[in-house]
Design a protein around this nucleic acid. Structure first.
Length: 494
RNA sequence: GGCGCGGUACCCAAGUGGUAAGGGAGAGGUCUGCAAAACCUUUAUGCGUCGGUUCGAUUCCGACCCGCGCCUCCA
């Protein structure tokens, strides 16, 4: 069975096969770096990350390219407002974006920046003009002529056949031939930042960069192009128009779009007070792993209702998985193996694969792993897990985490970074007690903790429970959970 | 108005023409010096409403109600 994936172009689920046997070439529309990334941005990027990880787990080499839009109207305006150069302005937010992406477990794609590909873009425009697919207006801007691409609208299923051509719209401002024609290159207005190029000074239109850079990195035709659902029109439609009309070849074969999320049941917006950047959530004390888990728990094509309560629930779910792994790695088991556990591990791996092959049904994959956890825990309790069962169970958990990436317990150092950042940005006030407490368990070293535990165990052995309880309370306050099991003491950071 | 998606238990949420995954939360229990973890039992005769097709529908069709998205640069 191969991956069944929804293709926006055909509006149906199709079997995914790359154009080259073993290599998948995919391009994802990345962020415009004018501000900190919000939770909606990251839903899309995590969906793409999940796809990338699953393709790799399925045996493909993956070439994953993502653009950084480091020039657009908003950037130019904000940079001017702050009195800094465009480069200075975007560098800060690009860095923040990459830190955030790493924080929630997104593997870094090959990055391409718009401002580093100006010459290729100018060349692209020149070719379009030579073939009479684009035109220059009096102010020095360039537009793509939609009338020259009959299949315009094929991705978004829009019908433009009724459009009146040649009727000039917005004459004063744009001088476009048709209202739907889109800007390839924008001439600078007085005082605006601009780039010199073979087609004159200005800045690239948004759509142009993605066509030029994706084809530059991956070839005229490649496997998959991804982005948020809002990009279907006009962004991706325009990319298709300019790319395919120039090369005469199909552009991307699969179009992958992640659905927008809701926050607390409503569209995320600043005015509703439900607009969260990733950093806002960490400042509230939420772990990066909780955020990633919640964002992956609903399949990418379904609307996900992101709530703060859901984040708490996600934290407990992740903890359950981590506890299970700890139980596997720290327990003592009798020699041998049990058929039940061996087949449980096998079935779980199969179920997860089948779920993900079904258009990345992450909810089903999670159900499979939890089913395994429950049944294996029950077997632990009844003593039927054997030494040779540990490896396959751990391997199944490992397969899960190759995709979901929530088990690695590095939340605390990541949260510490956000604390440090908040201080440098004068946002000390926004550091909640929840975050302070969460970071606290990072203060004690492993050796310190083990020393305390040894003391505690000594007290317990001599049945000096007042002393042991005091030590336990002290460690609990410091964010350390101690568990006394029949196989000995086990501890973890909360 | 055009095109599209969804409404499933207290919350999040998957799914199927044949009788409702999973997680969280609550309740009861087992284990435990305490705690933690874990396990067991329990919580939708019900899947927006009303009709229709069918031996049988939450699943297909229709209407309606509600929510959401795109329709020129918001992931």
């Amino acid at each position: 069975m191969a991956l069944q994936l929804y293709n926006t172009m055909s509006s149906r689920v199709e079997e995914f096969h790359p154009l080259n046997d073993s290599e998948v070439r995919m391009y994802a529309c990345g962020p415009t770096v004018y501000d900190y990334g919000h939770i909606g941005n990251f839903r899309t990027f995590i969906a793409v990350d999940l796809l990338r990880r699953f393709l790799r787990q399925s045996g493909y080499q993956v070439r994953h390219v993502m653009n950084i839009t480091d020039v657009d109207d908003k950037i130019i305006r904000n940079a001017a407002r702050d009195g800094v150069s465009v480069q200075q302005y975007t560098a800060k937010y690009e860095k923040a974006f990459l830190e955030d992406a790493a924080m929630i477990g997104i593997e870094q794609p090959t990055l391409v920046r718009a401002t580093e590909h100006i010459p290729e873009m100018a060349e692209f425009v020149t070719k379009l003009v030579e073939r009479d697919l684009a035109y220059r207006t009096e102010d020095g801007s360039y537009y793509f002529c939609i009338a020259k691409f009959p299949r315009y609208g094929k991705l978004s299923k829009k019908d433009f056949s009724g459009m009146v051509d040649g009727a000039r719209v917005d004459v004063d401002e744009y001088e476009k031939d048709s209202a739907r024609d889109f800007a390839l290159w924008k001439a600078p207005k007085p005082g605006e930042a601009s780039w010199d190029s073979s087609i004159g000074p200005g800045r690239p239109g948004w759509h142009l960069e993605c066509s030029v850079m994706s084809m530059g990195e991956l070839g005229d035709s490649f496997d998959l192009h991804a982005g948020g659902e809002d990009l279907i029109f006009p962004h991706h439609e325009n990319e298709i128009a300019q790319s395919e009309s120039l090369t005469g070849k199909p552009f991307a074969h699969f179009w992958f779009h992640a659905r927008f999320l809701l926050v607390e049941g409503e569209k995320m917006s600043k005015s509703l007070g439900n607009f969260f950047t990733l950093r806002d959530l960490v400042l509230k004390g939420h772990k990066p792993s909780s955020i990633r888990y919640l964002l992956t728990s609903v399949p990418y094509r379904n609307q996900l209702n992101f709530t703060l309560d859901g984040l708490k629930q996600a934290a407990v779910s992740v903890e359950r998985l981590r506890n299970f792994r700890l139980r596997l790695t720290s327990g003592n088991f009798p020699a041998g193996s049990s058929d039940e556990m061996q087949s449980l591990a096998r079935e779980t791996v199969d179920r997860m694969r089948a779920a993900l092959e079904d258009d990345l049904n992450t909810a089903q994959a999670q159900a499979a792993i939890f089913e395994m956890v429950r049944r294996a825990n029950a077997a632990f309790d009844s003593g039927t897990v054997k030494k040779d069962d540990v490896a396959p169970l751990l391997a199944a958990l490992g397969k899960f985490d190759e995709i979901f990436a929530v088990l690695n317990d590095d939340d605390i150092p990541k949260m510490k970074q956000v604390v440090d950042w908040a201080k440098t940005e004068d946002r000390d006030r926004d550091i909640t007690n929840e975050l302070r407490e969460a970071v606290q368990s990072g203060q004690l070293s492993d050796a310190d903790i083990e020393k305390k535990i040894a003391e505690m165990e000594g007290a317990r052995r001599s049945r000096n429970f007042n002393v042991s309880d005091a030590l336990r309370a002290e460690l609990t306050t410091a964010g350390i959970v101690i568990e006394n099991t029949k196989d000995g003491v086990r501890w973890r950071r909360k």
